[in-house]
Structures are given as C-alpha cells and as structure tokens.
Amino acid sequence: MISSALKPAVTRLIEPVARFALRIGLTPNTITLLGALGVLLSAGYFYPQEEYFVGTLFISFFALSDLFDGTMARISHSGASKWGGFLDSTIDRITDSAIIIAILIPLIEADDKLSYLGLITLVTGLLIPYIRAKAESYSIDCSVGIAERTERLVIILTAVGFEGLNVPYALAAGLWLLAILGVVTVIQRIKVVRNGLLNQ
C-alpha cells in the first residue's frame, strides 16, 4: 500500500546518495548490517528506559538504511544478489522483532495488559513474511495484505514517538491497530495460499 505508492518517488530522492555511497566503497550488505546494528542498539537502549521519542528518532534514522541498500544493489555494477536479498530479508525480521521486544520489556515489567497486544504483533510480524515466502515456494504470488512491513513499521514508530511526547493512548492505539491489521493480513495471505493450492 504505502510502500508501493511512495517507492518510486523515494527511490528518485535517495539514488544520488546511494551512488555516492557506492563510489566511496560501501556495499549494500555493509549498509544493511550497519543499519541493523543501529536499530538494535537504539531499540535496546532507549525503549526499555521508556525514552520513546529519542529512541524513535534514532531508530527511524537507522531504518532508512533499508531504502539505501536496495537502491545501491540495483544501481551497482554487480546488481542485486540472492545472498543480499536473503540477508536483507533476515535482517528485517530481526530488527522488526527487536523493536517490538524492546517495547514489550517495560510493559511486561509494569504488568501492563498492552503486552498481550505486543505479543500478537510480534507473532503476526513473523508470520506475514513467512507465509509469503512459503507461498512463493509453491509458485504462488502472495504479496497481498492490508498491512505490509512498511505500514507496520510506520504505525509502531509513530505510535511510540507520540507516546514519548505524552500524547494520551498513543501506544495503546498503535498496538491495537497493529494487532488487528496483523491478524487480518495473516488471514488474507492464508486465504490466498489456500486458493492457490486448490487451483493448482
């Protein structure tokens, strides 16, 4: 949804920076790993201390690496590689889970019922890409869904950021929305796989 609509415009904006990064010797995989390390350290340090706004700023900055590495791979002489695609996909799962886990830590410590929504979000966040990967192994296109990774990341970072600015119920609203959208997306993808297998 958001990602497919904005991707062409964003790509045009970041392509000059991606070319510069390639000229100074950086590789797409290096950017992937550096961005992931930044997200992991930022989430692990700021969110458990409930420093939500500053943490969100840092995480958002490092999460931009996900835009650059793909563009760098596309315009590089060697082009995109299967290893790079696998690494990027795996890193995405790690960083997305780390963000949710870091949010869960203070909620669990406070015995906050919102932690249950966080757990649902964590599980659906892993299931959504898994179902797509499994579907593609059956030669079924399964890129459908009301909330793909970009949408989920924007929702959680926006909610946590506003929570850091003391906006009432921002985190609760974000977790409820993510949990609902995650479950709906999982169901949508399961239906696509089921229909695809029945029609084979």
Rank of each mutant, 00 (worst) to 15 (best):
P16E: 09
P16V: 03
P16L: 07
V17E: 06
A18K: 09
A21Q: 11
R23Q: 14
G25W: 05
L26S: 07
N29W: 04
T30C: 08
T30E: 14
T30D: 05
T32I: 02
T32K: 06
L33V: 14
L33E: 00
L34E: 02
A36C: 14
G38V: 01
V39A: 07
S42G: 06
S42D: 05
A43V: 09
A43G: 07
P48E: 08
P48S: 15
F53T: 01
L57M: 12
L57Q: 06
F58R: 13
I59V: 15
S60K: 11
F61K: 09
L64F: 10
L67G: 07
F68A: 08
D69M: 06
T71W: 04
T71Y: 05
M72G: 07
R74T: 09
R74N: 08
S76F: 07
A80W: 13
K82Q: 09
K82S: 07
W83A: 06
G84Q: 03
D88F: 04
T90W: 07
R93K: 15
R93C: 10
I94Q: 11
T95K: 05
S97D: 01
A98L: 03
A98D: 00
I100V: 10
I103E: 04
I103N: 04
I103S: 01
L104V: 13
I105C: 09
I108R: 01
A110V: 05
A110N: 04
L117A: 03
L117I: 05
G118D: 03
L119I: 14
I120N: 12
T121S: 12
T121P: 01
L122Q: 12
L122P: 13
T124Q: 06
G125D: 02
G125Q: 13
L127K: 08
Y130A: 11
A133I: 10
A133H: 00
